[in-house]
Every structure is written in C-alpha cells, then in structure tokens.
Amino acid sequence: MSAPFYKFGLFGDNIGLVIAFVIGIGFGFFLERAGFGNARILAAQFYFTDLRVFKVMFTAIVTAMLGLFYLSWIGFMDLALVYATPTFLLPQVIGGLILGFGFVIGGYCPGTSAVSAATGRVDGMIYLVGLITGTFVFGEFFPLVERFYVATPMGRVTIPDILSLPYGLVVFLIALMAVGGFAGATWIEKTVAAKRGAVKP
C-alpha cells in the first residue's frame, strides 16, 4: 500500500494546498471543455434536448470508480483511508431535492457556476452571489435545523454494504448500467431534439 500519498505522509499541508490548486485547475478545465460553463447546456438536461450532464457525470463517476477499484485490488491503494462523507439519509434526500430545484432554476451547480463566472457569464456571477447568500441563510438558521441535519444517521456505508454484494460486482453492474444509460440518452436526444430543436452553444 502506498496511496493515498498524503495519508502516508509523503508531503505536508502546505504542499497539499498547492496540489489542491493544481487539481482545481484540472477540474475547472474539463468542466469548461464539457460545456458546463454554459447554463443553457446544463439546463437542457432537464428538457431532454441535450443529455451532456448525465453523460459527462456518469463517465467521470465510472472512470474514477473503476480506477479506485483497480488500484485497491492490486494493493496499491487503501480505500479505508479515503475520506467518505457519512450517510444521513433523510437530510440528504431533502437537501438533494432542494439542490435539484436550485439547479434548474439557477442553471448551475456550485462548481460549474465558478467556471461560468470565470468565462465572463454574468448569470454565473450572480448565481455565486445567491449561493453565498443561501449558505449564509442556512448558517443563520442552522440552530433550528440542527436536529434534522443529524437525523437518520447511517455512518460510512456503501451500496455493496447495504445490498450485501461484493464490491467488484457492484462496480461491474454500475459500469454496465452506465453504458446502457448512455445508449438510452443518445436515443432520447435524437427523438426529442428532432421535435424541439437541439441546443446551440
């Protein structure tokens, strides 16, 4: 085992911040390449005219998922040392719904709004002002929602855990579902775009 490097003490916190900046550049670069600095492309996902959000997101998830699985399988990486947010089912469902509303109303999520603002989009900049305001509102009302925030705690739990299936099998099934999903998404785009017209960048 030699990864995660940081957890094995290969470098300290200050180098970690430099790495954070470099990784962020990569993240922002590919978000912009995907077209995610543009709210019309992102919103098109929810009108079935351009399903890039689904395709990019699940390609990224499957790529990283396969990489993690392979690196842990050959004994290079200790997955137990990777930070995972604990599951709190109910607040995550409600939070996810509110976030979904915000996604189609505002046209971005936090990461994509940063890319949008950096490429000159005024709606992305205003969205960021809204995001900061919303975070402040949540912070101020936190004492009132604190009990709900920690409701239904399940700890660090994964899909293989809950289904009692082998990790590798779930990885394989998700990759398979993604490929099927991509084919389905392309078919939907062709059908709907023929009716409503495709999004132009």
Binding site: F27, M57, A60, I61, A64, M65, L68, L79, V82, A84, T85, F88, P91, Q92, I94, G95, G96, L97, I98, L99, G100, F101, G102, F103, V104, I105, G106, G107, Y108, C109, P110, G111, T112, S113, I126, Y127, L128, V129, G130, L131, I132, T133, G134, T135, F136, V137, F138, G139, V145, Y149, T158, I159, P160, Y167, V170, V171, I174
Partner: peptide
C-alpha cells in the same frame, strides 16, 4: 437558484462535486 443551491448543498453535506461525483465513485 443559487440561494436554493446553497441551502440544499449544506443540508445534503455537499453538492454535485462533493456528493455526486466523489461519493458516487466511492459507491
């Protein structure tokens, strides 16, 4: 929309990056 996103992301302990991408890849 940004304000709703701020509230939702805090309630859910992360957004499309921290939860969907990161947590998604970790199953």
């Amino acid at each position: 929309g940004g304000a709703l996103m701020g509230i939702g992301a805090k309630l859910a302990r992360g957004c499309t990056s921290g939860q969907a991408l990161t947590g998604g890849a970790m199953l």
